[in-house]
């Protein structure tokens, strides 16, 4: 036998379950006094952050067309200059007034989620080509066995979207619009369809 590679296996995922709020947004659930605030709540930007303030909102919709009222969404994005606020970002220092990360539970009555953020800049693909501005979404909920990764792209970035190397990888072009958020005023609407004719493109990244 050759030597072992000594690699471990990733821990298996399990559903976040119906009570994910207790752990991730306890104040929202009326469990006060443990954490000052719910981590990742509120706008992603501070007062001094550069960039255009926008709202991103929508619903997560199941195979029957019903919005999920118990989902948790996290987003991760670059700042207005296209830099990530992360130690793994080696191209420069991101805007210190912009975190790049937030989390939001969908509304218990309506299923709506809302993020207040800035429009991200462009980030290069590994081969150096610019990607179109985008926001990474990570979605967990009861009934979702392993977190779903997808991306929001911006409907008013047609030229950038047309040359985006990730969107170009989508073989069935009719599915590209599932990743495009539509602008109305300062708000981009992005609904995620877990199943059905309009099933959102999810990534194995």
């Amino acid at each position: 036998m050759p030597q072992a590679l000594n690699l471990m296996k990733e821990s298996p995922s399990q559903t976040a379950g119906p009570y994910v709020h207790i752990g991730c947004t306890p104040n929202l659930m009326g469990i006060g006094g443990i954490y000052d605030t719910d981590l990742g709540s509120g706008p992603l930007y501070g007062e001094k952050a550069k960039g255009e303030r926008i709202t991103v909102a929508g619903k997560i919709i199941d195979g029957s067309g019903t919005p999920l009222k118990d989902a948790l969404i996290e987003i991760w994005q670059a700042d207005a200059a296209g830099l990530y606020n992360s130690p793994s970002e080696t191209r420069g220092s991101a805007d210190p007034a912009f975190s790049g990360w937030a989390r939001c539970a969908t509304d218990l009555e309506t299923g709506q989620y809302t993020f207040r953020t800035i429009k991200p800049g462009r980030v290069p693909f590994p081969d150096g080509r610019p990607q179109a501005p985008h926001i990474t979404f990570w979605i967990v909920a009861r009934g979702i066995n392993i977190g779903l990764h997808t991306r929001l792209y911006f409907g008013d970035e047609e030229a950038a979207n047309a040359e985006d190397p990730v969107l170009a990888r989508i073989e069935h072009k009719v599915r590209v619009p599932t990743l495009i958020a539509h602008r109305d005023g300062d708000t981009y609407t992005f609904d995620v369809h877990l199943q059905g004719e309009h099933e959102t493109v999810f990534f194995d990244i």
Partner: peptide, 22 residues
């Protein structure tokens, strides 16, 4: 009713996945 039915799109990581909040 909450499981995607189409294949996931496999993608080598870009900076958007390699980076993360601290």
């Amino acid at each position: 009713l909450r499981s995607p039915q189409k294949a996931l799109l496999s993608l080598n990581n870009t900076l958007s996945e390699i980076t993360g909040p601290v």
